[in-house]
Design a protein around this nucleic acid. Structure first.
Lengths: 233, 233
DNA sequence: CCAAAAGTGTTAACAGTACACCCATGG
DNA sequence: CCATGGGTGTACTGTTAACACTTTTGG
């Protein structure tokens, strides 16, 4: 099939979330090329397309992991990349037709600190979610961000995505802080505790020998189990 | 930005659902070109990309509506097109790198009958969902179909997507048949009725003057309201 | 010893489910 | 007049939300 028609460029963009000091944060990079030079944008870049039928390049999620690594030094495997959806309105890039496949992932707090700008970025930084209203955002990344925010909320509330936002070992209070940052509302500690204990009973997490993290009283510390024996409902 | 790298082709594919005679159906077309000549596939085709910064072509959902219309004669506006996600594994098309943005929509039964093959298809036909296991499906469209099936189930159960599958006017029993086809399990008529009546009370639908459709006893006939005054929960 | 956070107990309210039952009507 | 599907009543269940309460421990 010979293409006589113009082809679009295809990129991946990544919304990487973390909860740091009880604050929901999004990872943005500062552009050092035109257009939107100096504006903040989602990390991302072009999908590598191969040279023919036998070399067709990389898969989309591979591209997303590679771009995140190249631009922010977050290594793949440290995050669980998921697709958010395609954003491809005509005119979203002033230069030419660019369709982006947006992804999202969560970053554990102990890795979040190692973020630093890569080749195509002048800076890389974590922004507190409410504060990004005051930041100049490139392209239609504000829209993508809003969708990603929705997706994160759902994934944490209903799909156990809180797993990827905790440190390796965490107390119930720390986990609750993540849920509160995600939902934006305070959560009853007693009810939250029972809810989490049910997940422990289902094999999703186990108490570790360690104890006490912060606060007044010693708290039991948990860690996630590789795979829940019983499927989480 | 001059691209020195090879670019992928971008297509849209559409999973169009309908419930006909209490059976969940998916719309497929029979390919009349290679590859997968003679196999069944989702309707779809290339996204039109413009010729420069000032003409960047059509939006993705426009492309999806256009392709569905061209290949099956379902006119846009008759369906509510939603994006499912991007499928872009290297090698999913044997010829060259093709990334497809999958969409899905629902088709009202009175329009489903007007489907006929368009230019790029030899046939267009509605397949009962369980039966497609026996059909040869082109590309990775089986995978897309499975995702679309999941999405439809969720959208009907939680997002009011049943709206788009009913005839203009419908009885509660007809609506229940749609839910049963979607979930694959029988639903208690009494409980379903109460659940729907709560939606009527919320302004989502209203009873019409007409009555009786099928069955023994006259049933009240409803129609959807343009926009619910109260948001549906 | 006291404030603050960990952890326990109890209850009301609600939604989902099951199922028994009455009503209207086409054949 | 009766089978069938439309439509009503109700009891039981499990989950959620609210909140009062006890325990532990760093300062």
């Amino acid at each position: 099939m010979a293409e006589k028609y113009p082809l679009p460029s295809v990129t991946v963009d990544i919304a990487a979330w973390a909860v740091l000091e009880s604050d929901l944060k999004i990872l943005l990079i500062r552009r050092k090329v035109s257009p939107f030079l100096g504006a903040w944008a989602l990390p991302g870049g072009f999908v590598r397309v191969g040279t023919g039928p036998d070399d067709q390049g990389e898969d989309l999620h591979e591209a997303a992991e590679r771009e995140l690594r190249e631009e922010t030094h977050l290594r793949a495997g440290a995050v669980s990349m998921q697709q958010l959806g395609a954003f491809g309105s005509a005119g979203r890039d002033p230069r030419t037709r660019v369709i982006t496949i947006a992804h999202w992932c969560s970053v554990r707090p102990e890795l979040a600190a190692y973020v630093r700008a890569g080749s195509d970025a002048e800076q890389a930084a974590w922004f507190s979610w409410p504060k990004i209203d005051d930041v100049e955002i490139a392209f239609d990344h504000r829209t993508i961000l809003d969708h990603a925010r929705e997706r994160l909320r759902d994934a944490i509330a209903h799909e156990g995505a809180d797993r990827d936002l905790t440190p390796e070992r965490f107390s119930i209070a720390e986990l609750r802080a993540i849920h509160e940052a995600s939902s934006g509302a305070p959560i009853d500690p007693a009810n939250f505790r029972r809810h989490f204990l049910a997940r422990v009973a289902a094999g999703e997490a186990v108490a570790t020998s360690g104890a006490r993290v912060t606060g007044r009283r010693r708290a039991v510390v948990y860690e996630w189990q590789r795979a829940g024996l019983n499927p989480a409902s």
